[in-house]
Amino acid sequence: MHELGIAGEILSVILTEAARHEAKKVTEVTVRVGVLRGIVTENLRFLFGNLAGDTIASGAPLVVEEEPVVIECGKCGESETAAMAWECPSCKCPDIAVRGGDSLSIVSVELDV
């Protein structure tokens, strides 16, 4: 349920931004979430929708961009993106490094002004 705090933070940021632009309505919110963050997208959408309730963000879709990890193989040199892996998707060896996948950011907000 750590999605609750995150949903609250997203709402707080976009409402501040909407007020700054004197917006009448928030029409869409886009966030980027790394696969390592352990965020359940459905939970995040549900909680965001609920918290947005009576605000001008009510009904605004929450678009979630998933950020994959990059798997770099130390043996075959291949580099590819994946949800998560503990062996090289190409040569199946465990000699890999995993990079990225830890984003947690608000990309943009669309407003009716």
Binding site: E17, L111, V113
Partner: peptide
């Protein structure tokens, strides 16, 4: 007047 605008934020959700 009514217009749509897209505001790029690129801001960490955990900024505070």
């Amino acid at each position: 007047s009514c217009a749509e605008m897209k505001v790029p934020l690129d801001r960490s959700i955990q900024q505070s």
